[in-house]
Design a protein around this nucleic acid. Structure first.
Length: 925
RNA sequence: GGGCUAGUAGCUCAGCUGGCUAGAGCACACGACUGAUAAUCGUGAGGUCGGAGGUUCGAGUCCUCCCUGGCCCA
């Protein structure tokens, strides 16, 4: 007779291999069909809400691994908060305006663009952005991200554009908006402003000149030795044409400077550079008169070499010893660093150059001259006044226009700014930063110092694809009209027509009736043609989305983005919200690191170490990508490599197989009728449930603290260590051989059922697809989707610390027994552990007491046929974990039972079943 | 160059306020089983805790410098 048929072996159609790339899309379809997101919305009504406000990715190009990381992290947070009993809507968003899209469309249109109006080009941009929104939307959905994909927010929606214009109006109302000057890249040939992305660097030959600026102030005490001398500061520049715009000389606050006497001149420059400079100037006969720090010269003055004005001596960290003299010619209207340091010292942002690259008419000596011709003229002038020490040529990297390939210049132009000081915006922002929870905590420090040190926010761009800055200019006097009332009126027009109306209508059609110039009272205007910085667009999403939608609540509970957003979205959102509402738009901000390759290097196409999400999905399934996100500590850089994915794939199979094995053994179990009460459970089953509660506790905490890698390790260890290698292994004999329906079997099934039910809920936020599949295979009445279920409740009644402590000791004994069995295996005494009889000896004390207490369970725990306590085992193996233990392994006594495979002396005693043991014949009776 | 941040076994992570021979799981090697079988079980080998100094009775843990990454600026 084949006794195999009398056993209760596992039965399940839950496949061992997930075949995830094929299975996942089916589950996605299932969710779609059941309207899972809508059901979560309904189920959530009345619960406390948790609002994670989505930072909008840019609507251009396919999603990359960084997007996947970000969205999956968000999804894990969202799903776990939902299961914890919150109402958690998720509105994905996209950033749609801006230069990259405008440039792509530009390229696509080619020459056609010349015959198109701005409004028509904007329409092209709009549809281009929409195409990518749709593509990215599908890619995000494939990741298993649950959200309101049918109603996302787009920064180019009419309502969003109106909200953007309204927020700008609020800044105007409060006096935070002003017009000022700032240097930008400018192509005089194309007569246009250029963004950083439109500038190409190429080698260019420029003049290299050294110029004297005669010192004209009172000498500080530190330089008293120079009294009565003809002292000059020496600057070096490659742009002589900016000398007419010179307003200052910048020294490094940390460096030491020297005064060098050569002939009748005393030249001042940095100590670390004077030797090489003197060599370049071909002056051999000189001596150092004095050396001094730079600080005493701060706010003293030199004379401009040929204009009747001063040049202020200032200090700045950007001055280095890499080139020049350590005294930097500063023209705040022509350089970024000059501009920043100029602002600090209150210098005028002076720009004497017009749109066509010519000096303005009022510029003395050079009025109307093209600056490309000016270098020689300026040098001639300086030679004439005796200021030019040396002129030569230098080849260096210089910015060029990407379109016409000509060198570009840096020149100050009129721009719109948001003041950091008006209404104490900076101060209030810093306070709000302190009131916000930053995860990890160092994020606070990082953004704090950025806000503390940043200049005013330049919000204007000389571009087309964006929300217009809704200001007007008086046709008569040029005064700007940018008051709250007018701007709100325009915002209302945007609400109905979108911001395209700005380009379709004339100023007179846009303005409210009776608008008049605040300066001269004139009534006709032109429109501002600059658009808003896209960071302003996304920065107002709290107003355009979180405040607007009925189901959201501002401030949001959480913003979650990469750590680059300390300068980006977290920053612009903070300023936009504090500037108009005095509060931060978020209560907490979580940041993650960047995805790097297996060696910790950043990904780049040229290096060829890019991992594309779609390829991981194709090979392993999204589930592995999701597990990757959970397993890595996202606060640091996040590594990805084939090895890492392979390891995760292995870990996934372990978890999956544990679930599958339990499902197989739950065959025929109905929790409605078969559940065994806590008090009647077999002890080891109670132990397993106690371990489960530890896991629940641990995992819930890791969701609370956003520490998902803790969860990953906890779950994996639970499946491997507690379940697979111990509990489930020990359980086999009972499950297979006990009579179906017996308390012994039902007790084990009860424990396994509760374990798998809880485990499935615990992993659902991460392994969303697999959890759903297990959920469908679990017996009993349950929600339609695991994502509509709640977290397992943490049942402290199941915790039993004493029981766990006893088992911890038993496991130590078991470990020593395993080592002894392994030795017996090596000598071919046994193969399977059931071939063995184990004798254990312990000296009187706690170990002996424990073993005597568990005398009848030892064979089961060790998975051997017989285990007995013995004495006088002097020749036996000593334990490793417990050195006082002695263990002897012998061949098991009796015959092998054909049914349960245990050896027993009772085999043969039943005449009806001569091949089986006593307990098996009982089970069959 | 500056600000922030990190560097513990092949991989992913523990290691709290300094204190027993630095832990876990996986991978790997070897073995067992063939009633979780493209599974499962057991055993084993793996680390000058990025490097160099220093403080201390004692440092992976504290200090200084350096090296190598990452993000953001310049």
């Amino acid at each position: 007779m084949d006794y195999k048929d009398t056993l209760n072996l596992p039965v399940t159609d839950f496949p061992m291999r997930g075949n995830l790339p094929k299975r996942e899309p089916e589950i996605l379809q299932l969710w779609e069909q059941m309207g899972l997101y809508q059901k979560m919305e309904e189920a959530g009504k009345g619960r406390p809400s948790f609002i994670l406000h989505d930072g909008p990715p840019y609507a251009n190009g396919h999603t990359h691994i960084g997007h996947a990381l970000n969205k999956i992290l968000k999804d894990i947070v969202l799903k776990s908060r939902r299961m914890q009993g919150n109402y958690v809507p998720y509105i994905p968003g996209w950033d749609c305006h801006g230069l990259p899209i405008e440039l792509m469309v530009d390229k696509k249109l080619g020459k056609k663009k010349r015959d198109m109006t701005k409004a028509e080009i904007r329409l092209e941009c709009r549809s281009y952005a929409k195409e990518w929104v749709d593509i990215q939307s599908e890619e995000f959905k494939r990741l298993g991200i649950l959200g309101d994909w049918d109603n996302p927010y787009l920064t180019m929606h009419t309502s969003y554009e109106a909200a953007t214009a309204r927020e700008l109006a609020r800044f105007a109302e409060r006096g935070g908006l002003y017009k000022g000057k700032k240097p930008i890249h400018w192509c005089s040939s194309c007569v246009t402003a250029l963004a950083e992305a439109e500038v190409e660097y190429a080698d260019h030959t420029s003049p290299s000149i050294y110029v004297k600026f005669p010192f004209a102030g009172e000498l500080p005490a530190e330089a008293a030795a120079l009294a009565g001398k003809k002292v000059s500061f020496v600057i070096w520049t490659t742009t002589p044409w900016t000398i007419p715009a010179n307003l200052g000389i910048c020294l490094n606050p940390e460096l030491t400077y020297v005064a060098v006497e050569a002939g009748e001149d005393v030249l001042v420059m940095a100590e670390g550079l004077y030797e090489s400079v003197m060599k370049t100037l071909e002056i051999k006969d000189y001596q150092v008169l004095a050396s001094f720090p730079s600080a005493p010269f701060e706010n003293k003055v030199c004379r401009h070499p040929f204009y009747n004005r001063d040049s202020l001596i200032i200090l700045g960290d950007h001055v280095t010893l890499e080139a020049g003299t350590g005294c930097v010619h500063t023209a705040p209207g022509h350089g970024q660093e000059d501009y920043v340091v100029g602002l600090k010292y209150g210098l005028e942002i002076y720009n004497p150059v017009n749109d066509y690259g010519k000096y303005r008419e009022d510029v003395e000596f050079f009025g109307g001259m093209k600056i490309t011709d000016a270098n020689a003229e300026v040098c001639a002038k300086m030679t004439e006044v005796g200021a030019l020490l040396k002129e030569s040529k230098v080849s260096h990297s210089y910015p060029h226009c990407w379109r016409c390939k000509k060198p570009v210049i840096f020149r100050a132009t009129e721009q719109w700014f948001i003041s950091l000081e008006a209404n104490d915006l900076r101060k209030k922002s810093l306070e709000q930063i302190k009131a916000t929870q930053w995860i990890p905590a160092w994020g606070q420090n990082r953004i704090y110092s950025m806000v503390e040190n940043r200049p005013d926010w330049c919000i204007s761009r000389q571009r087309s694809w964006g929300v217009p800055i809704t200001a007007f200019y008086c046709e008569k006097c040029g005064e700007a009209l940018a008051d709250g009332k007018t701007m709100h009126h325009i915002a209302d027009l945007f609400e109905d027509h979108g911001s395209d109306i700005w380009y379709e209508k004339e100023a007179s059609e846009l303005l409210p009736e009776g608008s008049a110039c605040p300066a001269c009272g004139h009534g006709t205007f032109t429109k501002e043609m600059d658009i808003l910085d896209v960071w302003f667009d996304s920065g107002v999403s709290h107003a355009a989305v979180v405040e607007q939608r009925d189901n959201l609540k501002s401030p949001a509970d959480l913003y979650l983005e990469g750590s680059d957003q300390h300068r980006g979205w977290f920053h612009s959102s903070l300023l936009a919200s504090v500037g108009t509402r005095d509060v931060a738009p978020y209560k907490a901000v979580l940041t993650h690191g960047f995805v790097v390759d297996g060696k910790g290097k950043k990904m780049s196409k040229s290096v060829g170490n890019v991992v594309a999400p779609e390829e991981v999905i194709k090979k392993y399934g999204v589930e592995i990508l999701r597990l990757w996100v959970a397993a890595q500590d996202y606060r640091d850089d996040i590594r990805i490599s084939q090895e890492i994915l392979q390891r995760l794939s292995d870990a996934y199979r372990r978890i999956r197989n544990t679930a599958r094995y339990i499902l197989g053994n739950l065959h025929g179990f109905d929790p409605a009728t078969d559940l065994v009460a806590d008090g009647e459970l077999v002890e080891i089953d109670r132990w397993a449930l106690s371990r489960l509660e530890r896991l629940v506790e641990r995992v819930e905490k890791s969701y609370d603290d956003y520490e998902f890698h803790v969860l990953y390790h906890a779950v994996h260890n639970f499946c491997s260590v507690d379940m697979s290698s111990f509990y489930l292994d020990v359980l086999k004999d009972r499950l297979y051989t006990a009579r179906d329906g017996s308390l012994a079997r039902r007790s084990a099934q009860t424990a396994m059922y509760r374990i798998l039910d809880a485990l499935t809920r615990l992993i659902a936020p991460v392994l969303s697809f697999t959890a759903e599949d297990i959920w469908a295979h679990l017996p009993g009445e349950r929600e339609e989707s695991v994502h509509l279920a709640s977290v397992p409740c943490f049942e402290t009644s199941l915790l039993d610390a004493e029981l766990e402590a006893r088992y911890e000791k038993l496991l130590m004994v078991r470990s020593d027994v395993s080592k002894a069995l392994e030795l017996a295996r090596a000598t071919k005494l046994i193969g399977h552990s059931l071939d063995a009889r184990v004798l254990v000896e312990a000296p009187a004390g706690e170990w002996k007491e424990l073993l005597e207490q568990y005398r009848d369970e030892l064979a089961t725990l060790f998975i051997v046929s017989q285990a007995e306590l013995a004495e006088g085992l002097d020749d036996a193996v000593a334990g490793e974990e417990i050195p006082e233990l002695k263990i002897r392994v012998e061949k098991a006594q009796g015959e092998k039972c054909e049914r349960c495979w245990n050896y027993a002396t009772s085999v043969g005693s039943d005449n009806d079943h001569p091949g089986i043991c006593h307990s098996c014949s009982d089970a069959l009776a």
